[in-house]
Design a protein around this nucleic acid. Structure first.
Lengths: 348, 348
DNA sequence: ATGAAAGCGCTAACAC
DNA sequence: GTGTTAGCGCTTTCAT
């Protein structure tokens, strides 16, 4: 059966007026029915709904938004989608916004400040009801845009600094410090660090700073380190582990800046018969679900990504629904050490 | 330094008129400068740009879009962000759209037709310049909306069916058939299948149908199967592998519906000392980068996700830039078998 | 090279 | 309960 050239396929999209004429009422009445606002008699309501459905009317939110100056979009700005951390935060955001009329719109910056500025500018030009943005480090321009946007802003995943408005997440420095403490408590002393070559990843940098700071207090310095960029993180974890242990075979702990390279390192160590966690301990960062299926559970630090997303979304949703802003503008979640099977127990 | 209550932080967002007044020209001139259209003298151009920058003016795209009936958004509708396949397609889309004025806007359906209808409706109500949507199976309502939207539509990742407009991807049935052929050619005969419990994942279903169809032609039936839902795919892969081999120890090949559970299965087999690929062969599906770091490279079928995204985006970009639509409305990419190390070589 | 007028499709506010 | 009027902040079109 060939598609008949139905009227619906004419190039001009339908307007309220079309529905109004088809239903024999005013545009205003159609508008009320379609938004479920105001009093409309059951009879006209049905007439209108029938007409709209029959014609296949899709409202024009552009016009609606302009007229009402209400836009049910929440800008969500994150550095990447390929690091599973961010989709998980997004899941938390969606979960909460699904209960509201708000909708998330995602922008990706690839960790580039320039792109962040641009993405933010683009999104703000759609006049969203709120902004959730990863990190607390932004260009002056970005901070100015956020400040003068007039909508609620939630910076997430890093509380080390001054937020523009609200902030939800963990202290990355503290996460680094706590991991260092856990390692030292467990008697490891010769420590290697493996991470990404990403000067622009402020969260990784702060973790590293916190980590070295606490080691320093115990008179320990990182003995060797390896950095990578690009490629399959699992494979890189293997390569880097081989390289660092080739150079510095006496290391007794390897701290990886993310779970994926940590998993690669774990596989390498097991294949090479190293005694984990006796001879050498391993830890990653993030607590990604993936780890559950590894031969041993890699030690890691869970950062409550889902909850971060949820709380950020709640702040926006509250503000958008006109509630007076809650007092809690700064929510610091606690990173939770999961020692898994790749760290020996603490000495007492 | 405390933030002074600058005029910019007044609650009313700036309009063109504000910039026009500040620059001492008409709104129209400001509009021209900001869009880089029409002839404006260098002098006024500078005046306007200065004023806009100084005030921190962010244009209102809602008003602009309504006036020009041009919206530089491309709706991208996918089932999930946690299956890495989709972020990769998105990366291909972004790569191409970054060279154009177009911007992707992502909607996630969680594999639910209801949600797909809703997300599509919401996105169409913003009058995007095009739609890229995963799959070729949609509700009647969704197909009607797509058809009457008046914008270019590209359905991706599955070519087995009648697209509304254009389609880019692989034939999932064919991918299933080719995997079956490869397995049979390599002398495996007692085959188990492990997959997701997702009646709504049409692509997985079609692959399965193609798979069994080709096996059938060789007089082979699947001997046993396992299905899962939820949880860590890697862990599930292990569990299911243990379960299926516990029940049916004579299986000599396991076909997993995705690489993640395949990887879990591979780890399990290696830990239990099974001879892979001699005693038992394994294969997954998708060709995810993750696999590079596994102890052995899992056999898989690469489906060119990046390229799929790129080509879909190109079709939209062409149409949006007013070029007459290219003839290629149906682009079938070829799934590529990557035998890795978990299938023995074909018998000749 | 610049400006003035009209209107995009809808909703707020007010009449009836 | 329903209709009318006047914009929302831009861009299009046409005049100068």
């Amino acid at each position: 059966m060939t598609e008949a050239k139905s009227p619906a396929s004419s190039r001009r999209p339908l307007t309220l007026r079309d529905v109004a004429e088809a239903a024999g009422v005013s545009e205003m009445t159609v508008s009320r029915v379609l938004r479920g606002r105001g009093d409309v008699s059951e009879a006209t309501r049905r007439k209108v709904q029938d007409a709209a459905a029959r014609l296949g009317y899709v409202p024009n939110k552009i016009a609606g938004a302009l007229a009402s100056s209400r836009v049910n979009l929440v800008a969500v700005i994150i550095p990447s989608l390929s690091n599973m951390v961010f989709p998980e935060v997004l899941a938390g955001i969606s979960e909460v916004l699904d209960e509201t009329p708000l909708q998330p719109v995602v922008g990706v910056t690839n960790y580039l400040p320039r792109r962040e500025d641009k993405v933010l500018f683009e999104m703000l030009s759609w006049r969203p009801s709120g902004v959730i943005i990863a990190g607390i480090e932004h260009s002056d321009a970005a901070r100015a845009m956020l400040r003068s946007s007039g909508v609620p802003i939630v910076e997430i995943m890093d509380t080390d600094g001054e937020p523009v408005d609200a902030v939800v997440g963990i202290s990355q420095r503290r996460a680094g410090r706590e991991m260092a403490r856990a390692i030292v408590e467990r008697g490891y002393r010769r420590i290697g660090f493996l991470g990404t070559k990403m000067p622009l990843d402020h969260r990784a940098r702060k973790r590293f700073e916190g980590f070295t700071e606490t080691l320093g207090k115990h008179g320990i310095e990182i003995e060797d380190s390896e950095f990578y960029s690009g490629g399959s993180a699992l494979a890189k974890g293997r390569e880097m582990t081989a390289a660092i242990l080739g150079r510095s075979p006496d290391l007794d702990f390897l701290y990886y800046s993310n779970d994926m390279i940590g998993a690669g390192g774990l596989l390498w160590c097991l294949e090479h018969g190293l005694d984990v966690p006796g001879r050498i301990g391993l830890a990653g960062f993030n607590g990604v679900e993936l780890l559950d299926g590894l031969p041993r559970r890699l030690a890691t630090m869970d950062v409550e990504r889902l909850e971060t997303g949820r709380m950020a979304a709640r702040i926006i949703a509250e503000a958008a629904s006109g509630e007076r802003p809650s007092k809690r503008r700064r929510i610091e979640l606690q990173p939770v050490l999961q020692p898994g099977d790749t760290m020996r127990p603490p000495r007492d």
